[in-house]
Simulated assay, not measured.
Amino acid sequence: MVQAIDRLVVPRAAVALASVVMLAGCQCFGLCTQAEAGGQDAISDAEVAAVCPVVTKSEAWVNRMPTIGDAPTKMTVMLGVNGKDTWFLTPLDMPAAQGLILDLKPGGATVPGTVAYRQTAPAPLPARIVILCQGSEIAAIERVTIVQ
């Protein structure tokens, strides 16, 4: 019985190990050849980055409706964008006298065409929310709506 199991397991384990080694080699080979290419053939981060989308709608609100429990009040920023790519917003770690600055980046687990950001509502609310993409301002929200 043990010999029968060994005859089944050993060949399959060898095939699995060989597959892993081959895939790892392909990954290393691809990275090595890209790193060695350098110079004019190298692709810059700017060329790889997606082109910023056109913002079709931008809004922000604070939900102050009664809730169950001690959930903190949240501020939500919502963007509508053109295109089939997914995007996400991250706050910039720089002081903004005028309000909140959010950076739009490609990726994220959102529905294409919709970008959302949520945080605990700051006090006082930001007077202005600026949306940047690749260092350029693409949208601004001048008023945060309070939902009561």
Rank of each mutant, 00 (worst) to 15 (best):
A71K: 07
A37K: 00
R128S: 13
K74I: 05
E142N: 00
Q98L: 11
P126W: 09
T33L: 14
D45W: 11
A18C: 08
R143K: 12
A42Y: 03
V144N: 00
F29V: 06
K105I: 11
V55N: 02
D41M: 01
M75V: 06
F29H: 09
P72I: 05
L23E: 11
M78D: 05
M65C: 10
M22I: 14
E137A: 11
S19P: 04
A37W: 03
A50W: 07
T76G: 01
W87N: 00
Q134W: 11
I101Y: 12
Y117E: 06
L31Y: 13
K74Y: 02
V115L: 01
S136K: 10
D85G: 04
A18Y: 03
V55W: 02
A60R: 06
M65T: 07
L100H: 03
L132N: 12
T56G: 08
R118F: 12
G135R: 14
G69Y: 07
K84D: 09
A139S: 02
A97E: 02
S136Q: 15
V111D: 03
E142P: 02
E47R: 04
V21C: 09
L100S: 08
V48E: 14
G80V: 02
P124R: 00
D93Y: 05
M94Y: 09
N63Y: 01
V130C: 06
K74Q: 07
P95L: 12
T67I: 15
C133M: 09
A139W: 04
T73Q: 13
M75E: 00
A35M: 12
S19T: 06
S19A: 05
V62P: 10
Q119K: 10
G80H: 10
Q119S: 13
L125H: 01
K57E: 13
Y117D: 09
C28H: 10
L79M: 06
V51A: 15
D93T: 01
P122A: 02
P95E: 15
G135C: 15
L31W: 12
P72C: 05
R64M: 10
P53Q: 08
D85Y: 06
Q27E: 09
D41Q: 09
P122I: 07
G107A: 07
A60E: 05
A50L: 06
E47M: 03
Q40W: 14
Q27H: 08
I131F: 10
E59C: 12
C133R: 10
I43G: 00
V48K: 13
C52G: 01
E142W: 03
A60T: 12
Q134M: 12
D93G: 01
P72Q: 02
A127G: 15
I43C: 03
P124I: 05
P106S: 02
T120M: 13
K74H: 07
S19D: 07
L132Y: 12
P53G: 01
S58T: 13
A139M: 00
M22T: 13
G113H: 07
A35P: 07
A16W: 08
F88T: 10
I129Q: 05
L104Y: 04
N63A: 00
C26R: 11
P72A: 00
P122Q: 06
K74N: 04
G80C: 11
V54I: 15
